[in-house]
Write a protein that binds this DNA or RNA. Structure first.
Lengths: 119, 119
DNA sequence: AGCGACACTTACAAAATTGTAAGCAAATGA
DNA sequence: TCATTTGCTTACAATTTTGTAAGTGTCGCT
């Protein structure tokens, strides 16, 4: 967890006030967040489906990043208690609003990445 | 410095191949990088000018982030050895090509940041 | 009742980033 | 020439992120 008393934390907050790009960056940065978002843009998925869709991610980190994304309101965890339950993760409208941003990042990457591959 | 033998490093590389947005993210993420880039978009600056333009940054971190940006070819360090010398930092063409990406990040931030301010 | 799959959580460790406080060499400026 | 500024670097510590391994509780099935 973050320490809200650290210089690091204060600096982050201050920067967010000065530079809204930095704020955006903070909600999408994290080793696997973008990948999770991209997968969820295609369709909503369950925890296990995400795990299989993203090779290399561990349970712990998947859970952490999902929680962070959920806290930032980018995705919704739908656990329908009425009909048994299988929690589903899907993008919130706010999450969907990130699509152009991510496309912009992708476009720059495909153009300028040394050795470029898919996506 | 990074350890090229860590799982963390391998995961990063693999992700870059799968997701070019993640690659882009890796070159712009870092506490102060965006701010540095934004300042340099306005005009080229010297080390000390950057230091004053970015309150809260320390010498060490400024130097580190400048070096990282330079290694990623986003900016040029112009030390004109002929005319005495005062090193100048300016965006490279590659750095300039990030402008639309950063604008995209800024736009999302200004729209969706809880309490919004300038930029 | 017992078993396995699923969706997590926990305790711990390694790695990576950021910050603190100095120091240091080259280039001014008086 | 000699103190001062400028542009860094170094040693060290705190913080933060990521990874490893194991465990927990609920559900459905048999």
């Amino acid at each position: 967890m973050r320490k809200t008393t650290s210089t690091n934390y204060e600096n982050e907050q201050t920067l967010h006030e000065f530079c809204s790009a930095a704020f955006t960056l903070s909600v999408i940065s994290g080793r696997w967040k973008l990948t999770i978002l991209v997968k969820l843009m295609e369709r909503e998925l369950r925890y296990g489906e995400l795990k299989h869709a993203i090779p290399g991610i561990t349970e712990r980190v998947l859970a952490l990043q999902l929680k962070a994304l959920e806290e930032d309101q980018l995705l919704l965890k739908i656990s329908d208690d009425t009909s048994g339950h299988l929690p589903m993760y899907s993008l919130s409208p706010l999450g969907r609003s990130l699509e152009p941003v991510i496309r912009s990042l992708s476009a720059w990457g495909t153009t300028h990445q040394p050795i470029q591959n898919c996506r």
